[in-house]
Design a binder for these strands. Structure first.
Lengths: 207, 207
DNA sequence: TGCTAAGTGGAGACCCCCGTCCGCTTGAGG
DNA sequence: CCTCAAGCGGACGGGGGTCTCCACTTAGCA
C-alpha cells in the first residue's frame, strides 16, 4: 500500500470516528469523505461498504469494552467489578452517539467465540457478586442488556447532557441492584441475539 | 364530506395507528396507503403532511397521558400517584414503537398552556410525594424525562419483550426512587425542551 | 528521469421517501 | 336517471442516500 494511501485511510478512519460519535451512524459517507478531504471512491476502495467502515472505526472501542470486562473479572471484589463494567460501558455509550448502533450492528459479526467468552465471564461475575452478598439475588445477567439498551436511548439527547443523564440513570440503577431491596418482577430473557433479530417486514413497497 | 371519504379517512387513521405502533414513525406513507387500500393522494388530501397524520393518529394516546397525570394529581397518596404516572406512561411507550417519537415531534406544537400546566402539576406531585416521606429527597422532576428517554430506548427491542423489559426497568427505577436510599450525583436539568432542541448541523452536503 | 501500477475524485446509476398533479370514477341530490 | 363536484389512484418531481465506473494523476522504483 502506497504511503499517501495509508495516510488517507487513517484520516478517513479518524474523521469517521469523530462524526459517528458526534452525529451517529446516519452520517452520510459523502460527509465523511468531504471532511477527510478525499473523494467518495476512496472511502469505498478501502472499506467496501459503509458497515465495514463502521466496524473498523469502532473496533478500538470494542477492544476497550473487552478490556473493561477482563479488568472486572480480575477484580477481587466482584460487586466493584460489576459496577465498573456497567459504569464504564454506559459512559462509552453516552459519549459516543454511534456506539450503541455500531455495537448492535457488528455484534453478529464479532467472532462468536469472543462473544460467548465475554458473556460467560459476565455471568460468572454476576454469580460471584451475588455470593459475596452485595448483589441482589434476583439480578439476571440479562439485566445488563436491559441497562445497555435503556442507556442507549439517552443518545438521542444533546451531547451536553447525555453524559450527566447517563451517570444519573446508572447511579439509580446500581442502587437498585444492590442487595437488600425488595423483590422484582421476573427477569426478562433479553439476550442480545433477541435484540438483533428484529423483524423488518414488508419494506419492499414495490410489489 | 362524502360518506366513502369519511370511511376512508377513518381506515387510514386506524392503519396508521397500527403501523406506527408496530414499526415506528419511519413507516412510509405509501405503506399506510397500501394497507388502507387507498392511494397516496388520498392520504395527503386528508392530512397535508406526514407529521399531521402522526399528530392526529396519536392524539388519543396524548389524551390518555393527560388523563393519567390528572388521575395521579387527584390520588390522595402522592407516592402512589407518582408511581402510576411513571408506570402507565412507560407502558404506553413500550407498547407503541412510535409513541416516543410522536411525543417528541408534537411536543412543541402542544399548546404550551397545556404543557406547562401538566409540568407544574407533576412538580407539585413530586413535592407532595417528598413531603409524605415516600419519595427520596433528591429526586428531581427532570428525572421523569430521564426515565421517559431511557424507557424510550427500549422501543428498539422486538415487541414481544419490550413490555416485559420496560416493566422490569421501571420496577428497578421506582425502587431507587423510594425514600431511604443513598445520595445520588446531582440531578440533570433535563427538560423536554432540551431534548427537542437537538442540533442537526451541516446536513447540507452540497456546499 | 521515465514508466507503470496504484491511487484518486466526481459523475451518475439505482433506490427509497415525501408530497403534488391530473385525468378518471362515483356518490348522491334533483 | 343525470349531472357534477367531491373523491380517487398512480405517475412523477425533487431530494438524499449508497455504491460504481472511468478517465486522470502520482508515488516510487529502475
Amino acid at each position: 500500500m502506497r504511503a499517501d494511501a495509508r495516510e488517507n485511510r487513517a484520516r478517513v478512519l479518524a474523521v469517521a470516528r469523530d462524526l459517528f460519535a458526534e452525529r451517529g451512524l446516519e452520517v452520510p459517507m459523502a460527509a465523511i469523505a468531504r471532511r477527510a478531504g478525499v473523494g467518495v471512491a476512496t472511502l469505498y476502495r478501502r472499506f467496501p461498504t459503509k458497515e465495514s467502515l463502521v466496524v473498523e472505526a469502532f473496533s478500538e472501542q470494542f477492544a476497550v469494552c473487552q478490556g473493561v470486562m477482563d479488568d472486572a473479572l480480575q477484580d477481587p471484589d466482584p460487586w466493584l467489578g460489576l459496577r465498573m463494567v456497567i459504569e464504564k460501558v454506559c459512559l462509552l455509550q453516552a459519549c459516543d452517539r454511534g456506539f450503541t448502533a455500531a455495537f448492535m450492528a457488528s455484534f453478529p459479526d464479532l467472532h462468536s467465540e469472543v462473544r460467548d467468552r465475554t458473556w460467560l465471564g459476565f455471568v460468572a461475575l454476576v454469580q460471584r457478586a451475588k455470593d459475596s452478598g452485595h448483589l441482589r439475588a434476583d439480578f439476571s445477567p440479562h439485566d445488563l442488556t436491559l441497562v445497555l439498551v435503556a442507556n442507549g436511548g439517552l443518545s438521542s439527547l444533546p451531547a451536553e447532557v447525555a453524559v450527566a443523564a447517563s451517570q444519573r440513570l446508572v447511579a439509580y440503577l446500581l442502587e437498585s441492584f444492590r442487595a437488600g431491596t425488595d423483590a422484582l418482577p421476573p427477569p426478562v430473557p433479553l439476550s442480545l441475539d433477541l435484540v438483533l433479530g428484529q423483524a423488518v417486514p414488508d419494506n419492499s413497497v414495490g410489489r
